[in-house]
Design a protein around this nucleic acid. Sequence first.
RNA 1: GCCCCCGUAGCCCAACUGGCAGAGGCAGCCGACUUAAAAUCGGCCCAGUGCGGGUUCGAACCCCGCCGGGGGCACCA
Length: 833
Amino acid sequence: MTDTPVTDENRYDFRAIEDRWQPVWRETQPFRSSNEGDDRPTKYVLDMFPYPSGDLHMGHAEAYALGDVIARYWVQRGYNVLHPIGWDSFGLPAENAAINRGLDPRGWTEDNIAQQRASMERYACSFDWDRVLATHRPEYYQWNQWLFTRMHEKGLAYRKHSNVNWCPKDQTVLANEQVVAGLCERCDTPVTKKKLNQWYFKITDYADRLLDDLATLEGKWPSKVIAMQKNWIGRSEGADVQFRIEGRDEPIDIYTTRPDTLYGATFMVVAADSDLGAELVEGADAAVKEEFAAYVESVRAASDIDRLATDRPKTGVFLNRYAINPVNGERLPIWASDYVLADYGHGAVMAVPAHDQRDLDFARAMDLPVRLVLDVRDEDGNPVEDPATSGIAATGDGTLINSGDLNGKPKDQAIAEISADLEAKGLGAASRNYRLRDWLISRQRYWGTPIPIVHCDDCGEVRVPDDQLPIELPPAEGLDLKPKGTSPLGAATDWVNTTCPDCGKPAKRDTDTMDTFVDSSWYYMRYLSPNKTDGPFDAEDAKKWAPVDQYVGGVTHAILHLLYSRFFTKALNDMGFVDFDEPFSALLNQGMVQMDGSAMSKSRGNIVRLSEQLDEFGVDAVRLTLVFAGPPEDDIDWADVSAGATAKFLARAWRLARDVSSEPGVDPTTGDAALRAITHKTMHEAAELTESFRFNVVVARTMELVNATRKAIDSGPGAADPAVREAAEAVAVLLSMFAPYCAEDMWSMLGHENVARGGWIDVDESLLVEDTVTCVVQVKGKVRDRLEVPPSISEDDLREQALAAPGVVRALEGADIRTVIVRAPKLVNIVPA
RNA sequence: GCCCCCGUAGCCCAACUGGCAGAGGCAGCCGACUUAAAAUCGGCCCAGUGCGGGUUCGAACCCCGCCGGGGGCACCA
């Protein structure tokens, strides 16, 4: 105990190292990006900004470790890298904390931000701290309001009365995207419908571009995310067809993807909760009206969960009205049902029970006729059983029957002909529909960006002029923030009552606030000009940095945030504010951090606390463990990896720098050639691997280099060899991407300053060329011999040597040779006759 | 129901995208150093790539069919 006291100089002590470098970095700010007087090429690396909820957790740790590898790599490669951070700080948790604990949401939010920032600094995130933003601050949300008014001018922001998703617990509306399996995304309460006047962004105007431009992201975004966005937009190609309605002047349109089945329509169905349904029932007798009213009531009361049950029996009401089939003049009874959606297509369908499962289910429930108009065959070529008896709709391909002039024609041809025919007669037209709906952005909550609109009795909806922005949130003090279905801002009388910007008469402010996804849809642009006071961002800055070269974040935002950002960017492009129309050129999704096979959660009791891991193993070991665990997009099970083992590796690497005994600046070319070859090969490979996100492999290569260097010191050329210094410096440079504290300490021991800007070790190409390579010689695909050959060997020479190789001769046993496949210099395969 | 991704040593993962299945690590075992332990250093063990076919001189990789796991959409006409 008393002998050989260990000192900081010869033992790797991560706590001492963290304490040593944190204040230095705070001073030197090695990752401040420069806007002027810097001719390095630029890279914009962006991490999804966090919500300021308490402290950082393991998920943050992984995301920021990965973003850091990329940002630090490009700095090492000599780029001027912009790697900013901020806070997505509006939203319900702050407001709920305010309600439940009586805290001011501003104070709660700012405290959390301060805590997270301190943790990020300890975690050695390579952020540019001069560009921090937080969306709840007026300097930021002023520009939300400014952008909203631009959207409003272009007709992209509008208000409409409609059935919206309503969370009874949060007492607020939800966007479609925030309803997950019929439950509120945030609190898992079953979502109901409510008819309200709400603000929307017209994202559907961009549906085609949002879908088609995904092609430009192919290979640069995860294919999974691209697929999810395609699914979500849900474009469908079909036709609108006009049906006359008896007793109604105007015909109505229906949307169908199967105009070929027009002759098979036996009834029509309108959405029960649609305006059309209400109108059609007007002329009916009292009994029908009453039945309809009761039905609509029951539909409204049903939650989305009930509606989503796929095996739910079909229900509906006959409206006692008839439509006329345009192709054959048949009278089709009109029904109202909830299986037809009011807000898709035209809220009405022609029902072809023989060829559509939903229509068939309805027809069987209501005893309506079923008419086959397509001869559909099964695998054996036999006609399928009549859907009326089998209960299974014939949805396959076939040739037309019972369809007048179209009889005998194949499905695709029939679709084309009937579409052209309807179009010629003015009864129809090709049409597209989308699953995507307009984005509902208004919220009846306090903690968000006030909508910059004034409602005036005379002038109507009036935009607040730019010079009156921001419309700041009134103080929360004295307001009842409890959710009650209308915005708490309504109670801030002094705030609400204002004058009309147009006519000067008394008027009222809009009391809704914006969905926080508005805040995050353009924040990546604000980082470029965080202090600009006369616009959201500067055109010159945008030209210099945007769009984002590399975005890093969780797949949880695959649809919502990324779709909205893409929409905003395209709108900004159309308005001439930016010259690109995709915000994120490349995207990396990190996986989740789990524990014992499942996501960490309070209820499972399997939460791994980041702060405890950092205390026990150190920042570097935790970061390195997360990066080394596997490919970035894979989930990590913390139980499968060992931060302790990683810490040991770091100690091993650190000792290399400690042991180097040559002077800084010594000429490496005089050093051990074998070690140099390993060093340069490692640097060469590490660059390629890093750029293709295979960070775990980079770590493995670094481990190999460390092992080789150790061996060189202990049982090779020794600690004074210049190649050993070169190798140790390479290790420090590589580790600066993953384990910045350890790397900086090594760098310092090696007599240098600021490893983050230490630069990549220039790869000497001549060291990558090996003197000889091992050529595998196969006979019929089995390895029979190996040859040491020069890499430049010719095919003929190699063939000759291979055929003479003892193992080959033995295997051939004098047999004739059919072919010899030569892949110089690595492989020869001899195929006997 | 439709669409997408993934199955390689006991475990986490590599394999230049068709060319020797193993780079790195965990765990395990053995040894060196030590009075002993820790730390450190060295060594060893371990799969024929989920299963069945096919293409090919050659398949973990390409194709077809299963099995298992994960994910997205889903009454969208």
